[in-house]
Each structure stands twice: as structure tokens, then as C-alpha cells.
């Protein structure tokens, strides 16, 4: 397999693997691993090393909403202008162009449902070109980025077997 793909896969599994550990696993030298990662970062293939948090288990209130947005495409710009505009807000965690009934899928984070509702009403909906919004609040997470939220869901084996 292409070695940089192998490194990307490993970092996707655990981005805190050290260069030395990655070198052991892939059989590359530490120097090669370091250079490959640097190169991938420079080319913006590797954009960021993030953390997946189960906020429910922290004291902090984090509410997430997925908002379907219908947009009137603009001459020469399609959906890009509106998408870029939506991206500017700090509350907005992700913006994607999607196929189907809606045009943009927007993920928004806030402290309360009310906060998000207000954000949609006062910031998102009034943007020129936005035709409609449909807000879905996330009530419970089962799996995200390949990780199960509930213990035992990802490994159904007995803990010790011969």
C-alpha cells in the first residue's frame, strides 16, 4: 500500500501515535515518517488533529443541531457564496453541499436549544439566497467518526478466552 495512505489511516485511528510508533508499525524510518507527515500537512491533506469528546460525560452543555438549508443558486457562483457566508459564524462547525431535497447541510453547536434556534432565526435564515431552513437537534449519539459511544458496543467478545 502507498505509505502515506498507511500513515493517514493510522493517524485517523489515533492521531497521538508518535512518529516512532508509526515507524515501527509501517517499517519506515522515523525520518521518513516525519517528512511524509510534514509533506501531508504542507499540502493540506492533514488539516487538523482533533479530539472526539462525549460531552454528556462532562459538565458542559453542548447541543448540536443539523440544519438542512435550501439555497437559491446564484448566477456564476452556484451555492458557494452562501456557503462561504455561513462558514463565517463561529457556531457553525461544518458546512457541506449535499444532493437531494436540500442544498447545504450545516452543523451548529450551542449551549442551549434556544441559543441555536435564535441563531437560525436571526443569522442563518435572513442570509440572502437562503430559501428555507429545517433544524434537527441531535438528541443522542450512538456512533461518531467510527467510535461507539456506548461501552461494549464495539467489542462483543468475552474479555478473556483461551
Amino acid at each position: 500500500m502507498d505509505k502515506s495512505m498507511e500513515i493517514i489511516d493510522l493517524l485517523c485511528e489515533n492521531s497521538r501515535l508518535t512518529e516512532k510508533q508509526i515507524a515501527t508499525i509501517t517499517g519506515l524510518s522515523e525520518e521518513e515518517v516525519k517528512n511524509t507527515i510534514k509533506n501531508l500537512e504542507d499540502k493540506k491533506v492533514l488539516l487538523k488533529y482533533t479530539t472526539l469528546v462525549d460531552w454528556e460525560k462532562t459538565g458542559r452543555e453542548v447541543i448540536t443541531a443539523l440544519i438542512d438549508v435550501r439555497v437559491a443558486p446564484q448566477q456564476g457562483h452556484g451555492f458557494n457564496r452562501v456557503a462561504h457566508r455561513i462558514c463565517q459564524y463561529e457556531e457553525v462547525k461544518s458546512v457541506s453541499l449535499i444532493s437531494g431535497t436540500y442544498d447545504l447541510s450545516v452543523e451548529v453547536e450551542g449551549k442551549t436549544m434556544k441559543e441555536i434556534a435564535l441563531f437560525v432565526a436571526e443569522r442563518l435564515a435572513p442570509i440572502e439566497g437562503v430559501l428555507s431552513t429545517t433544524t434537527h437537534f441531535v438528541l443522542k449519539r450512538y456512533k461518531k467518526d467510527g467510535v461507539f459511544y456506548e461501552e461494549g458496543e464495539d467489542d462483543k467478545r468475552l474479555v478473556v478466552t483461551p
Binding site: 467489542d155 467478545r157 478466552t161
Partner: peptide, 11 residues
């Protein structure tokens, strides 16, 4: 809350 590395079957 244990991490088990005790299993004799594929994951």
C-alpha cells in the same frame, strides 16, 4: 472499565 487484551479470537 478494563482494557482487555485477553481474547483468543479475532476482533
Amino acid at each position: 472499565d478494563i482494557i482487555a487484551l485477553g481474547v483468543g479470537e479475532p476482533d
